[in-house]
Write a protein that binds this DNA or RNA. Structure first.
Lengths: 334, 334
DNA sequence: ATGAAAGCGCTAACAC
DNA sequence: GTGTTAGCGCTTTCAT
């Protein structure tokens, strides 16, 4: 069996209290005993049990991350950056994919509470606001990322999705496009992007003709199908703004099916700047989210909350950036 | 504070032992008290603490997953499938990215052992065999996925990488290619693919001319650079087998830089069948790994081991499949 | 500077 | 059927 604090104490000829103090660097102990105990611990390969100390009310050094889908490159990257910062700060990550299901959200939250995680990071797509409120009332440390909850006083790191949509549409408008379609999804972030898109059209005096398509799922296939609808319509758009890179890839496919060349026959802009964007052909113009920075920042926020080092809550809004590549060009008549 | 077993016992007017028995459905209790206790538990929203029961030697219902990089689509997908099956069986997943570093491997293993995870799933890229041996000696439940450790008696789920390499090379050979280069990486899975490639060449009587390039990292950029070397060489290959889809995407880029059309001037085949493969242009011929099946199977194996339901260890080898798309065509002279 | 002892919330013998 | 009790491995007062 693994050695326990009692084994160490016995071997060192001291009490378990002394060993505990040495481990935690608390209380007063003579240099001599400290050194001896430390040696014995090394010798026995003693590893204190987190479970036992957690039971005494200390941290589990584990944080729960709830995201819609780990297999989605955006969330995978986000999770990775949270993992990195977490590990640096001594925390492990339990990851749960919710598939945008409120049922799973509350199931996982409850489960992780039973496991005494130190806190939660809730990522974009977390829909159950009521649950968030309950967590806050219980004073469970909590931070939100890639999502905003305007009505709640909660630490948040997000990207300005409105600006992102605005940038995307403005880019196309500046290139001379007037028939600009948008493919979006009915989730919070996409709704903001849509607002930004509308605002840009409005400012440019382009009539807003409901060239909107709402997909059920953020997938290449959905993007393809929806783009197909646009491309087969009477007045087909000269540019399409897809609210995610994978949707945009779907647009690429649809364009090929219709014998349309990107970017000459159709400009396409995506969102996220996942690796796909740079790897596609032609390479994709897109709106980059500072994913890594978001992950790092939200982890710092949560850990500070866990440690009680913070007084005031904050909202950090990072700005997206236009990455102009090859899939968008000036409009050149029909 | 959250109610404890004592609170419930008090309110129900029974002993904590009774409550415990009701919770765990053990021992003998009258239907009447059982019902009453259950009601009180619901009423108080009592959630038993995993930490406390773990301290008594029971499961933590947490499994540790060690993978090279969560942000890599292959591993993200694998992790997601493990997560799914794990959740169905009542387990949570702590994910640690090792970046192929033995140092991180042992750091995370130790940390998770302190946290009393029930078992480990070690994915491809786990290099520290010695560490695996130690875990086995300690009887820590353990399973390996997407990787083989031929010398170890350990539950394993992997894909036949040799066959994968063989399939890829054979496909190109059957298309009439004779100058077939390979871009690979010095990790276990890729070494096997290389062996398969060599075997196919051997059988076809094609002299093996060391048209091999070993990259340091599985990235688009590395693929691009390495392919560049081949394409600028005197006798440039007519086909390239890249040992991963991202590497293959790099080859796509390089080809464009050299003014070569895929597939007419150069056939390219990848490995993994990540979403990139279907989404690329032209769409990529590749070798598909049954990622999801691997994740499910390895989780089942581990959980059985944790529960002590299994006698014998096993190795499950799933077979890869050629997905023929557009990036490979028959060789048609220069 | 060190140790004895009282738990943290729960499980599992064992007694009644 | 139900309750008493002794821990699991550790932290933390409070004596000494």
């Amino acid at each position: 069996m693994k050695p326990t604090i009692t084994d160490v104490a016995k071997k060192a000829g001291v009490s378990i209290a002394t060993v505990s103090k040495v481990m935690n660097n608390t209380g007063k102990i003579s240099e001599a005993t400290k050194k001896r105990v430390l040696e014995i611990m090394k010798e026995m390969e003693f590893q204190p049990s987190f479970v036992a100390s957690a039971l005494k009310g200390k941290s589990t050094y584990t944080i729960g991350l709830l995201i819609p889908d780990l297999a989605n490159p955006f969330f995978a990257e986000l999770a990775r950056s949270i993992e990195d910062r977490g590990h640096n700060l001594g925390y492990n990550l339990v990851i749960c994919s919710t598939d945008y299901s409120m049922e799973k959200e509350s199931k996982y939250i409850n489960l992780l509470k039973q496991k005494s995680v130190d806190g939660f990071i809730l990522a974009s797509g977390f829909e159950n606001i009521q649950l968030v409120k309950e967590l806050m009332e219980e004073k469970t440390p909590l931070a939100i990322v890639a999502r905003e909850m305007p009505a709640l006083e909660v630490d948040t790191v997000s990207v300005d999705n409105f600006l992102g949509g605005y940038l995307a549409a403005s880019h196309l408008i500046n290139l001379g496009h007037k028939e600009i379609a948008i493919i979006t999804r009915d989730v919070w972030s996409n709704r903001e992007r849509l607002r930004g898109y509308r605002q840009a059209l409005l400012e440019a005096g382009i009539p807003f003709e409901e060239k909107i398509d709402v997909v059920e799922e953020t997938s290449v296939e959905c993007g393809r199908k929806m783009a197909g609808k646009f491309l087969s319509s009477a007045r087909r758009p000269t540019a399409i703004f897809a609210c995610s890179d994978s949707l945009a890839i779907g647009v690429f496919h649809a364009a090929r099916e219709f014998g349309l060349k990107i970017p000459n026959d159709l400009s396409v802009i995506g969102f996220d700047d996942t690796p796909w964007a740079g790897a596609s052909f032609p390479s994709m113009t897109t709106i980059a989210q500072p994913i890594r920075e978001m992950g790092l920042a939200v982890t710092d926020l949560l850990v500070k909350a866990i440690k009680g080092e913070k007084e005031t809550k904050q909202r950090l809004i990072l700005l997206p950036k236009l990455i102009a590549r090859e899939s968008t060009v000036p409009y050149s008549g029909r």
